[in-house]
């Protein structure tokens, strides 16, 4: 599934405490065009709830969430 998503930019948020992941990802998404996808990698467990809420507020879409040992990867498409 992951292979299907073409990632245009990777945002590394490892080790950052809340709220930095949201701050960084909001900035990161502005660097790509509408329709492109960024991959955000975080270690912050709160992100599992924060990112969907952020996506809803900012009008972007989370295509896929990938959980690995200690890491969470979000694939987010810029919609607005």
């Amino acid at each position: 599934m992951t292979e299907d998503i073409k990632v245009d930019k990777v945002v590394d948020l490892k080790g950052m405490p809340c709220p930095m992941p949201i701050v960084k990802v909001s900035k990161g998404i502005k660097d790509v065009e509408v329709g492109q996808v960024i991959e955000a990698i975080t270690t912050d467990p709160g992100a599992l709830a924060d990112f969907p809420a952020w996506a809803k507020t900012s009008g972007n879409e989370i295509l896929k969430t990938d959980q690995q040992e200690g890491l969470i990867k979000f694939y987010i498409e810029r919609k607005a």
Binding site: P45, G46, A47, L48, A49, P52, A53, T65, Q67, G70, I72
Partner: peptide, 13 residues
């Protein structure tokens, strides 16, 4: 909507 994500996150911890 976000409860599930939250609970998974907590379980991981």
């Amino acid at each position: 909507l976000f409860k599930k994500g939250f609970l998974t996150g907590i379980k991981n911890l």
